[in-house]
Structures are given as structure tokens and as C-alpha cells.
Design a protein around this nucleic acid. Structure first.
Lengths: 220, 220
DNA sequence: GTTATGTATACTGTATACAGTATGCAAATA
DNA sequence: TATTTGCATACTGTATACAGTATACATAAC
């Protein structure tokens, strides 16, 4: 019987709150000037402070929130320098995945990745959110196939922070479209089996994303 | 006035508990068969369950603890496959730091790193714990100089998990001594300025550590 | 002997009350 | 005007009580 593994862990109220907060941040319901107060959130959600508190602290731990003057929480604001560092860490994680995959991939991996890129690059949702998701899905699929749970954790941490800024997603649609059409080369270089080249191609791709990002930020 | 920055953040009881638990794990006071129960720990420490609960959940989030059958917490047990993945993620983080430093370092960086390696490789504390700390200090100093807070976070996450197994530290002392005498080459390759070579040398160094680790585990 | 069923136990999750602390503002002093 | 002092306010951190849920074990049924 494998039913139990479908329900992996106990669902706590704090998880609910955590996800609702992230959703609210993505929807821009929560802005940089809002202060998140345990009591108010608890009242709004009709629950007690305890799970709210837990969710807020988790988000703080992940670097999404920070404590503001009065002790309450607010969105963490990233500066240009930090954005650079975040992209560097992306390159570390995804570059290593590329190296792993270059050395160690099956034909099925390549076919799967080609499928993902093809599907996601032709996404019909042309919103900023849509592009963000498509881009993330593509990059995530490489990490998935590298089959390393720690690299996957790190990937999620990084992209989680990206929600906040709003990073990886501020650029105008036209540029997003351009940057989204460039992923098949990533599969190709993995298929070539050259791990050093794979790392360079991935690093350059992510660097391009960074440049677009910075340009987009300074345009607005 | 710069007094305020000395006291960086509010100190919570949960932080205390968190650190005490980690200390206890390192001292092997908490073994793989112990089950950590909120109420019992709270009673022992003469505090309420709330901060204990918070600390336990943080450790679970970091992958140090896992929930056991009855709902309580216990040490997370890593398998060989996971150890391999952990080392791969180490290579991702520290390898990227090496690339950053190779391209972008000052003479002061090199001098500083040489100093650290020299000092730590001649550590007088010959206990397993002593070697572990020396090794970590050396590796941490590279990450510090790479000056990227996200890579630093990841480094701490990885080495935090290492406490548990007891990873990076199970090997017999004689082997530790051998592996500890090999760090100056890491500084040299950074000083050379070749980022591709730097990555390879760091990756190989970490791979060596992995091989020692696995050998040590299977010997015991 | 194996499978089902009930019950005790061992824990957690959530709500809530209370105490404490940092901030901001307003009044008082120099 | 500039600085100190005091007080109200806005929050959190911690303790505790209560309810709920999954496990384990014993007993019953087949």
C-alpha cells in the first residue's frame, strides 16, 4: 500500500499561512511599505497568533522578510550588490547541476529536458508571472534531473527570494520573450558531455539574465 | 555612536535552545536513538515549550532533525547517496567561490588566506573536533573572501548538516592530518588567476575529502 | 496464527493571557 | 533651539491550557 506516502507530512496551519503570505507577495498585495503584524494577520485570517508567528519567522529565516523598527516584519529590500550576489549563487547551483548532467545523463534526460524547454518556451500566458513561471520551470527541470536534494533546496531558496524583489521578473515582456528563447542551447551543451563547457554556457546564460535584470531595474 | 551595532539583534530564548541542542549533538550527548520531546526538553531547561518548539522546528527545517513516528524529533540519518549529494553541493558553493576569487582578488586576500591556512594547519588541538574546526575555518575563509552572503549561507547550511552524521569528522586522526596538509595549493590556484583551473582544483580537493569520508564510514 | 477492533498513551498544534521592551512623541529643561 | 525625560503605544516573547491525532498494545474475532 502506497497511499500513506501521498500524504507526506502533517499539514499545519502555519504552512497555510506561509503559502498565503507568499501568494500575497507575488500578487503585490503586500508591498515594501506594509508592515506585517502578527496580531493583525491573525485577526484577518481568524486564527491565533502562534501559526502566524511561525510562518513569519520562517520567511524571515529565508531572507524574504526582515524585522522592521517596531519589531514587526516587512519585505526585505535588496540592493544592486545583493542582486549580483544572488545571481552568482544561482550560477554556483545551476552550474554544478550542468556539470553533473554533462558527465552523467541518459538519453531519457535529454529527451525530457528538450520536451520541457519546448513546452515552456511556447507558453501562452504572456504575463510577467507567466514568463517567470516558465523560466523557473525550465531551470528547475535541470536541477531536478541532476538529482541532488541539496542543490534543489538551494535552488528553491534562491528563487524564493526572487519573488520578493520582484526579481527575475521585472523586465519588460519583450525582453522576457527574447531571454526565454535561449534555453535549448543549455540542453545541447549538456548532451555534448563537456562539463567545463557546460558550466561556462550556464554561467553565461545566467549572467545574461543578470544584465537584463539590472537594465530592467534601472529603467523603472 | 556605534554602540548599538554591537548588540545586533534581539536575543531570543529559542536561539539559546537552538545552540544548546547543536552543542549537545556535537558532544554526542544526543544520539541517533534519542527522541527529542518538546515537553521533556522544556522541563530540563526550565522553560516553556514554545521556544523549544521553535528551535526544534528550525533544526528540522535545516535538515538536522526529522520527525519520528510518534511525532517527536530525532537526528536525521544520512545514507551514502545523500553524503555524495552533500559533497556535490559543497563543490558547487566552494567551487564558485574559487572562481570568483580567481578572477577578483587583491594581494591582501592572498596574504590573508595564506595566513589562515598556515595557522589552522598547525592547530595544536588533535581531537576529531579540533580537526573538524580547523578544516572548516580554512574552507570558510575562502567563502568569506568571496564576499557573497548567499554562498555563505549555503556554506553554513551544508556544514551544519555535517555536524549530524558525524560528517567530515569520522575519519581517523592520521588521515585527517594528511588531508589537512593540503590546503595551500588552494590558495596558489586562486593566486594564479585561472578560474577554470581553480574550480577543478577545489572540486578535486573536495572529492578527496569525500573519498576519505566514505572510507572512514565503511571502516567503522 | 492472523487480522480486525478498541483503548490508553504520547505527543503535537493552536489559542490565549500576560509580561516585557523598543519606539516615537510630547513636555520639560537648559 | 537643542537636549533630556517621561509616558503612551505597538509590538513581540514566553508560559500555559486545551484539544486533537497518530501510534502501540492488548483483546477479540475469524
Amino acid at each position: 500500500m502506497a497511499f500513506k506516502s501521498i500524504q507526506p507530512a502533517r499539514r499545519r496551519l502555519a504552512d497555510e499561512v506561509y503559502e498565503e503570505l507568499i501568494e500575497a507577495i507575488i500578487r503585490r498585495d503586500i508591498g515594501p511599505d506594509d508592515s506585517l503584524v502578527q496580531e493583525k494577520l491573525a485577526a484577518e485570517m481568524q486564527i491565533s497568533r502562534t501559526p502566524v508567528r511561525e510562518a513569519l519567522m520562517r520567511l524571515e529565516n529565508e531572507g524574504v522578510l526582515e524585522v522592521s523598527k517596531r519589531g514587526s516584519f516587512r519585505l526585505y529590500q535588496m540592493g544592486d550588490e545583493e542582486v549580483k550576489e544572488l545571481y552568482q549563487s544561482r550560477a554556483a547551483v545551476e552550474g554544478q547541476c550542468a556539470r553533473i548532467l554533462a558527465v552523467n545523463h541518459t538519453p531519457e534526460d535529454i529527451a525530457y529536458l528538450r520536451g520541457v524547454v519546448e513546452r515552456e518556451e511556447n507558453v501562452t500566458d504572456h504575463s510577467v508571472r507567466g514568463y517567470f513561471e516558465a523560466n523557473r520551470n525550465i531551470h528547475m527541470s535541470f536541477v531536478e534531473r541532476a538529482n541532488n536534494r541539496f542543490l534543489m533546496d538551494m535552488f528553491n531558496m534562491i528563487w524564493g527570494k526572487a519573488l520578493v524583489f520582484p526579481l527575475f521578473a521585472t523586465i519588460e515582456n519583450v525582453e522576457l520573450e527574447k531571454s526565454l528563447g535561449d534555453h535549448m542551447q543549455l540542453v545541447d551543451v549538456i548532451a555534448s558531455g563537456d562539463k567545463t563547457e557546460a558550466l561556462e554556457v550556464f554561467t553565461d546564460h545566467i549572467q545574461d539574465g543578470f544584465n537584463l535584470q539590472i537594465a530592467g531595474l534601472h529603467a523603472s
